[in-house]
Design a protein around this nucleic acid. Sequence first.
RNA 1: GGCCCCAUCGUCUAGUGGCCUAGGACACCGGCCUUUCACGCCGGUAACACGGGUUCGAGUCCCGUUGGGGUCACCA
Length: 567
Amino acid sequence: MLEASKLRDRSRHSFPIRGAESPIAAGTPYQGESPKIMATVRTRFAPSPTGYLHIGGVRSALFNWLLARQQGGQFVLRIDDTDQQRNVSEALQPILDGFRWLGIDWDEGPEVGGPYEPYYQSQRLEKYQAAAQRLIDDGFAYYDYSTPEEVNAERDQATFEKRPFQYSRNWMATTPQERAKFEAEGRSFVVRLKMPREGACEFTDAVRGDVSFEWSKENDHVIQRSDGSCLYHLASVVDDYDLKISHVVRAEEHLPNTPRQIFIAQSLGYELPTYAHLPYVAEPGSKNKLSKRKLEKYLKNPDFKRINEHGQDIAARMGLEMTAETFNPVIVDFYELTGYLPSAILNYLVLLGWSLDDKTEDFTVDEMIKHFSLQRVTKAPASFDAKKLWAFQDRHMQNLSVEQKAAGMMPFLQKAGLVADPAAEGEMEKLQKIVVACGDRLKVMGDILAYADYFYVDDDKMAIDEKGFNKRLSSPESQAILATFRNHLSDVEDWTVEHLDKEMHAFVDEAGIKIGDIIHGVRLSVTGKTVGPGMFDCLAILGKESCLHRMDATLKLAQETFPPESE
RNA sequence: GGCCCCAUCGUCUAGUGGCCUAGGACACCGGCCUUUCACGCCGGUAACACGGGUUCGAGUCCCGUUGGGGUCACCA
């Protein structure tokens, strides 16, 4: 693991500010505070309340959570709502729900509190303002009276001249006199960081190793607006320190932000956390960063499309009107609503940028916690592969008992209005029989709804697959065989899988036909489908009365649709 | 464009100088099983971006090239 002290030393050497201004040499109010060795691992995930939980965000949160759990530390949820106006709780709820569903629990944060409350940045403003003031007092930040237009003009000019932009500091005010002068002009101020312009910011990243940035390429970022509100970088650094975060584990897009955060932290006299920048999660089949706004593009990926349509179908069966914005495989809700297993999602996600060895693929959550390490995080971005997630889901589903599956599926039947809530006597038993019969065909909990088409439908309302119907029941011969077998069945008393199996075999032997000549017609007549669980399971579950009824109805329809004369 | 990061089968990855005629998984293709579908089993196709070094020896180290990506706000 990376030593914070090493980090600090490294940075000190390269800190380019003149001696008197150096945060280490200067007599800042915090100089006397001896740097603590952070024995406890504390990690955080800091979502912005956007209304949904993004799959890439979950991956970042998972790695943070895993690290904290493994080290016996704490995982903190902090809400980065510095720029949000209203409806924060409404926009936050889906995120919290998503984490709860996945089993990623937080030791401190919204709804659970903690020793460093509040955990909302919108409620910590004074702390940022105090930090900004300290930065100004110590010469690491300044009042800036420029207008956005003036700065943009400088930026455009730099771009035009093909040189890196560096703010002129023409509207920088460091004395009361200068401030008065600008204010007399009717100007308002923001607070900018007085970034170093020489040397380099070097630090060791726990996943990327040594990285280095030229200070001169950094800009004098705004940390406080004219209305007194503070910006992300300041807030983030102050909070990470206040909340005693030991490891800042976040996605790679934050890597270029790190120098300015290090500048803020060191200027404030803070001990630096260990930084770990994870590769971001990329789009299906590309290396672009995954984003929720490019669904159209992802839908062109066949695997992604199939998974999406499968989920849409389940949602539709529950009468949910989902828009692509809120319901697609990039958003965690999608998986919860369609009945994926949290353990499968986590198992897939943990392998997106991390591996234990050359073979191990299946992990329980406990095993992930046991084996996870920052050292084995990869550096290259990993594409989101919906098909592979599906494969994990398949495997995790297979590990469930019949009881577990049935219990997980019952709510889906209830939401679809097919089973009363609470379920009547015998419903769970029936479901369990169906689950057994369906076996591995049920990939997600919501898949039960597809089988409800015939297991949970009135006999006279069952839909029949047209193609299969035309293929299997259009000839007088096939109709005759089915009719004969139906009459044969009406005499059967022992309506069990084993006995029905025997009956049919005896029937085909006697009739001198093959089982394939009849079984498809039977399946179609009682389920309306060409595919499904074992035929005898279907018959047994449906019961004699329903089976005969459906066979009669289907036969009647066949005879009407394909009268003998038409041949 | 500046800065930064990255680079092994289609995808996720193993590989930290010889154990690599590059391993595993998903997907794909064949075959088996089978009343359908699904599962399962067996087998197969498929990768070290390129060029220079260093070394007895390089996927592994160094440099360059190319390619890809991230980031450059009074967003987070």
